[in-house]
Design a protein around this nucleic acid. Structure first.
Lengths: 147, 147
DNA sequence: GGAGTATCATTAGCTTGCTAATGAGACGGT
DNA sequence: ACCGTCTCATTAGCAAGCTAATGATACTCC
């Protein structure tokens, strides 16, 4: 347990596992969260729109695959757009909509629990440190693409 | 971009992608790193030993699968233990051993680059914050198992 | 209006991780 | 010496992510 890469990977793994367990209690898996959040906000988005609006970068094929599992699980339905036959619109079922509050609350509790032993100051520091790292690495990605 | 769960997942994703890209330049993929580290330290471990010694928790099936890909990539060879027929010992090839220094250096550089915009104090804060989160979540896991 | 191009979703195929089920081999006790 | 149990690695099967390739539909320009 030494360098910060290891620490971050370890923290991430534990948090993902805990998130998945928490969400599973509501019939939802961790990978479905981004899609749910996008559709809770705006129902009837296309896979591409979900990908671009998601709170975290995610590719369209991942949305499509996850949406297929969610359809099988009765969380959403697919409907072809009547005006543009290329588009597929994703609509949440009542079950998925009903899960919104419990899931949000679970995640809030998890975040609180995970950082329970930190002081407010430490939480603030953590936040800014992560933001700086993200910014540093994200600009790398943008850079090589050039302009 | 709001709660710390999101920030941590985002930072993790960027770091994993950057790590994989860096290691790929040396003919190694990110998932192979834990096995390499264990075998650099002690060659000829069994999959189960690698799993228990790895710097990060990982399951034996994951070791086995990754070892199979590494074998195909010419990074290691499998040999049955002559004394105990249940055991399989993993031995690195020269190619894998030669990659040790370059890969370590690449990862060090990546960690440095990722945290380049942080002050030393911020780095220290980040480290302790992650440790606290890990400890908090890891004790959860141990707890439910009881004693 | 038809051909070529652009824009979608989807499929194919890969990696990395997991749990549960299998199967082979070793070992302890009778 | 054999039977049951324990300990391994492996396989099966799933989730979640990615890039590249496909295929269907729309749009644009002549």
């Amino acid at each position: 347990m030494d360098d910060f890469l290891t620490l971050l990977v370890r923290a991430h793994k534990l948090l993902q596992a805990a998130s998945d367990e928490a969400m599973s209690r509501h019939g939802v898996r961790i990978g479905q969260n981004l899609i749910l959040e996008a559709l809770w906000e705006t129902d009837g988005l296309t896979p591409g729109e979900v990908a671009s609006r998601a709170r975290l970068p995610i590719t369209t094929p991942t949305i499509v695959n996850t949406a297929t599992r969610m359809e099988a699980a009765g969380l959403l339905t697919r409907r072809r757009d009547p005006k543009d036959g290329r588009l597929v619109r994703l609509y949440l079922t009542d079950r998925a909509r009903a899960a919104q509050q419990p899931i949000r609350e679970s995640r809030r509790q998890l975040a609180e629990h995970a950082t329970a032993t930190l002081t407010d100051e430490e939480r603030a520091h953590l936040r800014t440190a992560l933001l700086k790292i993200i910014q540093q690495l994200a600009t790398d990605q943008a850079g090589p693409g050039e302009r």
